[in-house]
Design a binder for these strands. Structure first.
Lengths: 102, 102
DNA sequence: CGTGTAAGGAATTCTGACACG
DNA sequence: CGTGTAAGGAATTCTGACACG
């Protein structure tokens, strides 16, 4: 569905232009497990638009003085919330389906 | 609206991976006025996802033996058709608006 | 902990040109 | 006309490390 948003095609130099973050910082956040670029055949990192958005979120939190480990936990939490929300929506759909069934 | 689709962020090497076209061909189609990449500060070409799609269209037509000049004319025609279609839709909207007005 | 930087090497991109056809 | 290639230079990216704090 969001094929363009999630396709990893942007090199670190362009990510730098887009986010203002240095290549050093971008690589460091990767080493801390906050982002997960792919690689070209010869090893160059490739990022998606959603990676770029995530990096801007991370930059904001870093400006607030939040440490990378805390940011990681927050990100995991956000994903957990999204999963729960999706499960609830799915649950509602299933409930309606079952109503009709009987 | 299609911000990710049209944002120029992909380097020629990745475009090559995505389309299978050589850098030489990609640059040549630019010189023939079929595509219009942007440049980074130091002159590296940057393409959008819609450029990538267009290049695949171009590749198909080239395989049929169509020359770049003909392809260019076809592309201009497609855009003309789209513009006309959009104008007609706009015309319908205006007509409905005027109906209500009187 | 988070970021800068100098280091050395490898891979990328750019342009203009010659080649073939 | 459309594409490959060798050429030379400039800019990019990568990794591991030292520095500061």
């Amino acid at each position: 569905m969001s094929s363009y948003r999630d396709k990893k095609v942007i090199t670190i130099g362009v990510v730098n232009e887009l986010t203002g973050l240095s290549a050093r910082m971008i690589r460091y956040y990767e080493s801390r497990g906050l982002i997960f670029p792919e690689r070209t055949e010869r090893g160059t990192r490739k990022y998606s638009f959603s990676d770029v958005e995530l990096l801007m979120e991370i930059a904001n939190k870093r400006e607030e003085g939040i440490q990378t480990y805390e940011i990681k936990k927050e990100l995991l939490n956000e994903n957990k919330k999204k999963t729960v929300r999706d499960q609830m929506i799915q649950g509602q759909l299933n409930a309606q389906f079952n109503m009709k069934k009987f």
